[in-house]
Simulated assay, not measured.
Amino acid sequence: MSNTLPDAKLYIDGVIRSSSNDAWFDNINPWTAESCGRAADATEGDVEEAIVAARRAFDESDWSTNRDKRFELVSKLVDEMFAQREHLTNIACLEAGAALGAANRAHIDGALNGGKDLLECFKKVEWESDRGNKVDMGIKSHRIVVNEPLGVVAAITPWNVPLYVNVGKVIAALLAGCTVILKPAPDTPLMGSVMGEMADKVGLPKGVLNVITSADPAMAGEMLTRDPRVDVVSFTGSTVVGKRIMENGASTLKRIFLELGGKSANIILEDTPDFQISCMMGMAVFHAGQGCAMPTRMLVPKSRYEEAVEALKISYGAFSQKWGEFGNPEHIMGPVISKKQHERVLGYIELGKEEGAQCIAGGGPAPEKGNGFFVQPTCFVNVTNDMRIAREE
């Protein structure tokens, strides 16, 4: 497995290139807190070119109408992702800080299998259905329902499991007949850029897929969500940014799809088997808890509370030496994504202590793991629902 990554370049109108002003930013490896590569830092002009290209490809080509053609090409794109599985795994480990055990699951195999599933879904779509005749108010109507692509899609994706989310948004939109502008998070630019490289390799028409990388987390997103030439925004990320996207898209009545933050709960009932309590820990620490499906709090009946606390102590104790080792396929937890997130997580841990919760595992950084953004697997009990650590992601 390589310790460095290739340049993450823009992919606009069928051309893989640097930004128009040849600016770059560092791609930081969370395991070391050092650069493992660089990414093209797009300008506003680059974003404008991507919008123009996607709009033209939708309006002037047969991508939206030639279903056989796009199924064939998107199938080749999914096949190419499978062929590059090892490369994609390396990107997930170095760029997103995924432990190898996590990369082999949701990061890569989950994404690749999701791409296959979308191809199977495509085969089942009823593109046109005849609903027959109906007479209403003396007027006879022959009703036909046609499913059509929505237009240009801005896919704005997060850093936690980037390939998984990129595939879910991009492959689905392409199969539907839309054209796409993919804007990955600044922390994981290559996992977006590589999709452009693969699209170019399998021969997707110019402008059908465009990829924009930028050090500025807001510039490209602001342009895409305000521009009337963009018809759809699909965003996964924070609630604050989701609100902003809804505001920006309102004036042009964009279709907005949002998957935002939350504080997922595991609810333990009186008859829950013992093993389910002890296995909750595994989900909470998977990829350092950085996922939309992570049940990061547990609600337990008073009658089983002490039992649950003891189960968590045992689980976290057993796990304490089984994380943070790069390249170990049995490890499912590595560092958090960035210095900013490292400081934020540690801040919440201190906040939990200040609010009066009891820390039964972890509770601080893990410098013994290296110079990266490591936080000990941490668990609080005696948490009340008015505490911020129980309410905020």
Rank of each mutant, 00 (worst) to 15 (best):
M333G: 08
P6T: 01
R55K: 15
Y316K: 05
D231W: 00
N160R: 10
S20M: 12
F326A: 09
D386T: 14
A215N: 13
G151R: 02
E49Y: 10
N382C: 11
S214F: 06
E49P: 03
H107L: 02
Y348E: 04
C93L: 14
F58G: 09
I171E: 00
M1G: 14
G347E: 04
L150Q: 11
Q321K: 15
F58Y: 12
A311E: 02
V146S: 10
T157S: 14
L118C: 07
I12E: 00
H331G: 06
M333C: 14
K116D: 15
I267E: 03
A318Y: 10
L163A: 01
D130P: 01
H107Q: 06
D227E: 10
E306K: 14
Y305L: 14
A250V: 15
G242H: 04
E72V: 01
N3P: 05
R255L: 13
Y164H: 15
G168F: 07
R143E: 07
H107A: 00
G101M: 06
D13G: 14
S35A: 15
A57M: 05
D200N: 14
S251Q: 10
F275A: 12
W323I: 05
L312Y: 08
H342I: 00
S338A: 07
R131D: 01
P295S: 05
K9S: 02
K369N: 06
G37C: 09
L299S: 04
K76L: 12
G221T: 00
N113Y: 08
K76N: 10
Y164D: 00
V240W: 13
R388G: 07
R131G: 02
Y11A: 08
V336L: 08
P162E: 00
V194M: 08
N266T: 09
L269D: 09
T239V: 15
D22T: 07
N133R: 12
T43N: 06
C279R: 14
V383N: 03
M198H: 04
E148S: 12
D117W: 13
F257Q: 13
S214D: 05
I16L: 11
P329S: 06
G168I: 01
C36I: 01
K9L: 10
A83K: 15
M195G: 12
E350N: 13
V300G: 02
A83L: 10
L94N: 03
F82Q: 02
T213K: 08
R38F: 05
R304G: 03
A172D: 00
T239S: 11
I337V: 07
V161I: 13
M219N: 02
G372W: 04
A173H: 06
L77R: 01
S303N: 03
I91V: 12
